[in-house]
């Protein structure tokens, strides 16, 4: 089985995120870059599937130079090779452009599965997997908390609000995973050393066969015109318990429409 895993570098989950003054896009320099957490689950699932039935895993990331670290992290975990799509013209791309570039790069490479995390912690749109599936004309099997492949049949449990649906499709297909699906591994030191020797192919927008005018900030369908800092946290409300503390808390919660 040949599996592509799409991994994105995002600002450290716990760091305060900022927009740049210059063009109001995310300031990727202000915080350490890490692999988007849900993408770790995607890598883990790809590794589990190929460990069980053979095959290869290719980690794919679109992002600035620094994003190579994230491809490398996937290689340290055990992926076999990487593709890093890097091009100045990509700066500020929206989901539509991202899915265009990814689908061009992923097409015709013989992948049986393309696995994503179901959303990224910086953009939180959850749409790129669906868009890529649509562009490639393959089934979209999103929000999986379990994945099974038998021959050319793919079965997933698709997580819903109250439980899950069982969904079946043919391969090739696009899968996105939720965090219930597995427990991502840490790289071992052996993995860290082996990753040094694994190939990472660098791909530009032109290599992908995409016109630079279709991507980047200028081509984005939505843009940030203006932003302001989050107001500082106001002091909390203290309720003295003179015997009626419980009632006062209930009243407060009800005023704030929590209950």
């Amino acid at each position: 089985m040949k599996i592509a895993v799409c991994v994105k570098q995002v600002p450290d989950t716990w760091a305060e995120k900022k927009l740049t003054d210059a063009d109001r896009t995310l300031d990727r320099e202000s915080a350490d870059g890490v692999m988007n957490e849900l993408d770790e689950y995607a890598v883990e699932e790809a590794l589990l599937l190929t460990e069980a039935s053979g095959g290869e895993v290719v980690a794919v990331s679109m992002g600035p130079d620094k994003a190579e670290e994230t491809v490398r992290k996937a290689l340290q975990m055990g992926a076999d090779s990487g593709i890093h799509i890097v091009d100045d013209s990509l700066h500020g791309s929206d989901a539509i452009a991202t899915s265009l570039v990814l689908s061009k790069v992923l097409a015709d490479k013989g992948f049986d599965l393309i696995i994503f995390g179901s959303e990224s912690t910086d953009a939180r749109m959850s749409v790129v997997p669906a868009m890529v599936a649509e562009r490639l004309g393959v089934p979209q099997m999103t929000f999986a908390n379990k994945v099974e492949v038998a021959g050319e049949t793919l079965k997933i449990q698709r997580q819903t609000e109250y439980g899950y649906d069982e969904v079946e499709s043919s391969t090739p297909a696009v899968v996105s995973v939720v965090e219930k699906i597995n427990e991502p591994r840490y790289p071992s030191f052996k993995g860290i050393m082996a990753a040094k020797k694994k190939p990472i192919e660098t791909v530009t927008v032109a290599d992908a066969g995409v016109d630079a005018g279709q991507v980047g900030l200028a081509a984005a369908w939505s843009q940030v015109d203006q932003f302001s800092e989050r107001p500082p946290k106001a002091a909390g409300v203290k309720i003295e318990d003179d015997g009626s503390g419980g009632v006062k808390i209930a009243e407060y919660l009800s005023e704030q429409k929590f209950i």
Binding site: R72, Q76, F189, I192, A195, K196
Partner: peptide, 8 residues
């Protein structure tokens, strides 16, 4: 290399 040192 620096990469394996930082990795560990």
């Amino acid at each position: 290399s620096r990469e394996t040192f930082d990795g560990l």
